[in-house]
Design a protein around this nucleic acid. Structure first.
Length: 578
RNA sequence: GGGGGUAUAGCUCAGCUGGAUAGAGCAACGGCCUUCUAAGCCGUGGGUCUCAGGUUCGAAUCCUGAUACUCCCGCCA
């Protein structure tokens, strides 16, 4: 269904076409930059006027004259050098809010549902998840939730790293501990330690290193003992991931797993197909694909290596196999790779090769949803003092601990159980929000205080707004007085502002679905919460006279629904009280 | 050497793709709890949008150049 922004774009676009005599011009509608300019403004007239060398104010006036009128619009005026300012009618806003509350469909589904593969999280199972895995996991999860809510068919793919040389080393090490099972179990409990110990042994003990290499070969040849050991290790490591997903509230399940090893048998076929199409070249013994659009130094062609000189395959090969699977078997129409921005060249190459080789249909959209690198406070790539990464588990524990301190300070009367429950939600939400609210594409500075801050533009602010709302509705229920929810009436400025904001929820989600920027949803929800807070300060609900009370209660109920929906799409849990 | 990215308030970041007086939060200062949760609300101060040019009615946004930081560039993922 068309939202108001789309409707304005269409109506004023038509008017602008008539006034200018040009087909296909955009009215360029945005929500107004300042409240005195109305609710929406059209910025498109001026660029068209420029094109036609016409006076922009005259063209704006003509556009308004050509505008056929619409009951949803109360006022439409030309302003400044050629802006068109639009004020929505109070009656329409109240009616739209009433309708949304009554029917409960806050989100207008897309008119063109697509099969969309979202590849995200993809941790390396050789190690424990660290803070660097946070972004991809929660951004991907948010995007998947939003696309799904808009009616797309979303296929989540967790492309975990479970294959390659390091696994030979790890299972060789695990076997070497077989004689002391207790040590093995203990070390496996701390994957990071296990990896470090294995690596140390690998680096210092040449005999062990040789053994590890043999394990890799045996593993790839399908040796049953090796596979069993590998399976054991993978299952163990996956439990770590699942514990994190569970704690984070990420929707990924074991059904979404499609590990690197899944494509193992496809890898030789990829080489064959590329070869059959004449796309392969051999350079220094390695099999490469050279594409014209990628140039290295002095215009020299830039290779993408798909098979090493020793016959081994590389991650480009695996990614090609995954693309082929997604294109041909999953029948994806859009494929999103939520992966670190540093891999952008890699994906450009892989996408180009896959297209040329016909692994994916021509009209399949391939997008690298790149996110920025995590930096230290010094502006250099992030490392702790000891040179390690911060485990994701540690970050989440610290977040919950800090939240508990705050909860205890603010609400000492609450039971231990209640404080634990609240601090768990507040702490985890704060971590997720502080990441989601930043521009996905920029690098970001990892800092405990920023990451775990709970004031201002943070998840706790929005959870607090939500809890206040629930509290009003609870109090109303406690009075035992009947109050018919449903009819929302035009009200004062704060109520009006809230209604305007509420009906912008759908248009926000459509933007997020296109650009895959969860930060836009964060900004919207933050503004919605702020708008509600101002309404809350200015407009008594329960103490208002009956007609106004019923209307305000309905508005409050609708705000609760939108906030709850939006926070859920961000992947945050809500609280009834805090 | 080639290519990509970033540079906005003391700090962390927005800025809807060229629009109106560049916005938030934190930090600082001041005001608001006998009224639905003060994790809140209102107000004050804080800016050469890295620098230098250019394009035009109009630039933080586009183009050119410079500087700083960062990432990637044939057998790791």
């Amino acid at each position: 269904m068309e939202n108001i922004k789309q409707a304005l774009e269409r109506l004023l676009g038509d008017a602008l076409c008539k006034a200018s005599g040009i087909e296909d011009v955009r009215a360029n509608i945005i929500s107004s930059s300042r409240p005195e300019f109305g609710d929406y403004q059209a910025n498109g007239v001026m660029s068209v006027a420029k094109q036609l060398r016409r006076n922009p104010r005259d063209l704006a006036a003509e556009t308004v004259a050509c505008f056929q009128g619409d009951p949803r619009i109360a006022e439409i005026t030309v302003a400044g050098p050629g802006f068109i300012n639009i004020v929505l009618s109070d009656a329409y806003l109240a009616r739209a809010a009433t309708q949304a509350l009554r029917v409960g469909d806050l989100i207008a589904a897309t008119e063109q549902p697509l099969r969309i593969v979202v590849d995200y999280s993809g941790p390396n199972l050789a190690k424990e998840m660290h803070v660097g895995h946070l972004r991809g996991t929660i951004i991907g999860d948010c995007i998947a939730r939003v696309l799904s809510a808009l009616g797309h068919i979303v296929i989540r793919q967790n492309h975990v790293g479970d294959w390659g040389t390091q696994f030979g080393m790890l299972i060789a090490y695990m076997d070497s501990l077989q004689s002391e099972p207790q040590t093995a179990t203990m070390e496996l409990a701390d994957l990071e330690l296990f990896y470090r110990n294995a690596k140390a042994r690998f680096d210092s003990d040449t005999g062990f290193a040789e053994l590890a290499r043999q394990y890799v070969v045996r593993l790839q040849q399908g040796d049953a003992d090796c596979l069993r050991a590998w399976q054991h290790f993978i299952e163990h490591s996956l439990k770590h991931c699942e514990a994190i997903y569970d704690k984070l509230g990420v929707t990924l399940t074991s059904d979404d797993l499609r590990a690197e090893s899944y494509y193992n048998n496809d890898l030789p076929l990829i080489i064959e197909e590329l070869n059959a199409q004449g796309m392969l070249s051999v350079s220094d013994g390695a099999r490469c694909v050279f594409l014209e659009e990628f140039k290295g130094k002095e215009g020299a062609p830039l290779p993408a290596i798909v098979q090493k000189s020793d016959g081994g395959f590389l991650y480009a090969t695996t990614d090609l196999a995954a693309l082929r699977f997604r294109g041909r078997t999953l029948n994806a129409e859009r494929i999103l790779y939520v992966v670190d921005a540093r891999q952008s060249l890699h994906f450009q190459q892989v996408f180009a090769i896959a297209r040329k080789a016909g692994f994916v249909p021509l009209d399949c959209r391939l997008e690298h949803i790149a996110y920025g690198t995590m930096m230290g406070k010094d502006g250099k790539p992030f490392k702790t003092r000891s040179g390690d990464t911060v485990k994701l588990q540690e970050l989440l524990d610290e977040a919950v601990r800090r939240a508990l301190n705050i909860v205890t300070e603010k609400n000492p009367e609450l039971s231990q159980e209640a404080r634990d429950r609240i601090s768990n939600t507040v702490g985890i939400s704060a971590v997720k929000y502080s990441d989601l609210s930043k521009n996905r594409t920029s690098d970001y500075v990892f800092d405990w205080d920023t990451m775990l801050s709970m004031e201002g533009n943070t998840a706790p602010y929005m959870l607090y707004a939500y809890a206040r709302i629930r509290s009003i509705l609870r109090k109303q229920a406690e009075t035992g007085l009947a109050c018919n929810l449903g009819e929302i009436l035009p009200g004062g400025v704060e109520e009006r502002a809230l209604m305007v904001k509420l009906q912008q929820y759908t248009e926000t989600l459509h933007v997020v679905a296109v650009d895959c920027m969860p930060s836009h949803l964060c900004t919207y929800l933050y503004e919605l919460a702020g708008t509600f807070m101002r309404f809350y300060e200015a407009c008594p609900v329960l103490k208002a006279e009956p007609t106004v009370r019923a209307s305000r209660l309905s508005l409050v109920a609708l705000t609760a629904e939108v906030l709850e929906s939006g926070l859920t799409l961000l992947g945050l849990r809500t609280l009834e009280s805090m």
